[in-house]
Design a protein around this nucleic acid. Structure first.
Lengths: 227, 227
DNA sequence: ATTATTAATTTTGTATACAATATGTCTATT
DNA sequence: AATAGACATATTGTATACAAAATTAATAAT
């Protein structure tokens, strides 16, 4: 799991005029890598993040790792205990409920705006992505479900044309996903929710999309409350 | 504007058993200092943040400053332009509107929960804080108004007993405050809104508090749309 | 005088160094 | 064998070092 530096090193020589979508900044790469590890389940709640270890694994020094940790702390993915180090955040049930309360509002707004502002192509692509997995049984591969679920919600918020909303939701979704009890998830129910939401968005029915999304998130909230 | 290290350096020798509320971590101190400078108007949108300068001003090295910048970037207070440096974020009108859309939902939730979960003491204190400034004319001191407004909203979210909501709202409020056109604010209207919201919270009327807060934020939204 | 070119300076991004603290291991004592 | 104390090792938090890039200043050319 080593970061690819090539684009960073060579982009000035190669194509000066091209837009640098890459941030050319190791902090962001470390940050993204760690988020991905959390989503994949390679880093689990409570686990200590040894700076030197993480730096070596990613092929960088501790300096950008430290900055990335600070960034991750802002979105409740890691927690700093002074003089002890950084740990993957372990969320209490109460905090999970609080987070769902927030997600409920934000994702509803996102679904509404996605129906209103998303392009026809994005809407088509969203629907087809959900249809593609609608018959799949995720019970044997919870990580795959997490990735799909994350991508579904990420796309909708991206379609909302609100960059701040996008980044907020995607970070908090990672927290939710990495902290949930996978045994309790009703995968087929979840996917059929996704299907209904995608259809409402495709039909430009913003109010319905908002309502369905609100109910969808509430299902997750009820589930963790019942654990 | 130099950071006080004394507690950090001596706390192990002096009172080992006392709870270290200080994070013993310069990153957080730098982070807070910069947020405060933004709120005070000492740092204005678009301004470049020279690392060495900031470090010298706060009496630390560039390392904690860099981590603090990364943290601030997560809440849209600063923007990193690779190889160029960090700048106080300059928000477009569209982004301001998007941010208000988010704040509207989050603060409404906060007001509702504050009425539900805030203590009697907190409610009393909130109301008396607002009453104290209700006759004051802020038109000559917009920075004072900003600080008061920030504190009003901060307290409510703190009363909501949702730490994640608290940190999110307080950071986004700083962005809003530091990016607004002060000439356009109707101070007396704003304070009378605050008064009505405080009363609804004191009366444990969660639904009303939510509705009033929603309308209060919408006023701000309409104002920036009209500029 | 204005623009272009080159050189000097500043600033950034990252790595490394170093002191302070925390963790782990070993031995001694009961 | 279990516990406590002392020593060794590892890890953290911060400062400094250094190469690469950007900015500014100085010089030359039109």
């Amino acid at each position: 799991m080593s970061i690819d530096h090539s684009s960073f090193i060579h982009h000035t020589e190669s194509i000066m005029k091209s837009y640098k979508v890459e941030t050319a900044d190791l902090v962001d790469k470390v940050y993204s890598s760690i988020k991905d590890m959390i989503l994949k389940g390679e880093l689990v709640p409570g686990q200590k993040l040894v700076q030197e270890e993480m730096a070596a694994q990613l092929g960088v020094s501790r300096t950008p790792v430290l900055s990335a940790f600070s960034k991750l702390e802002k979105e409740w993915l890691v927690k700093s205990i002074p003089r002890r180090g950084f740990y993957i955040y372990e969320m209490s049930l109460e905090e999970k409920i609080n987070l769902f309360d927030i997600r409920l509002r934000l994702e509803s707004l996102g679904a509404f705006k996605a129906a209103e502002l998303g392009s026809a192509g994005e809407k088509k692509a969203l629907l087809s992505m959900v249809e593609k997995v609608s018959s799949k049984d995720f019970s044997a591969s919870p990580t795959d479900f997490n990735r799909h679920d994350y991508e579904f919600h990420r796309r909708i918020t991206e379609m909302s044309r609100n960059a701040m909303l996008s980044t907020m939701i995607s970070s908090y979704n990672i927290v939710s996903l990495s902290n949930q009890d996978e045994r309790a998830i009703d995968y087929s129910r979840s996917i059929s929710d996704h299907l209904a939401i995608s259809r409402a968005i495709s039909d430009n029915n913003a109010a319905k999309a908002e309502k369905l999304m609100s109910e969808h998130i509430r299902t997750g909230l009820d589930r963790i409350k019942g654990v």
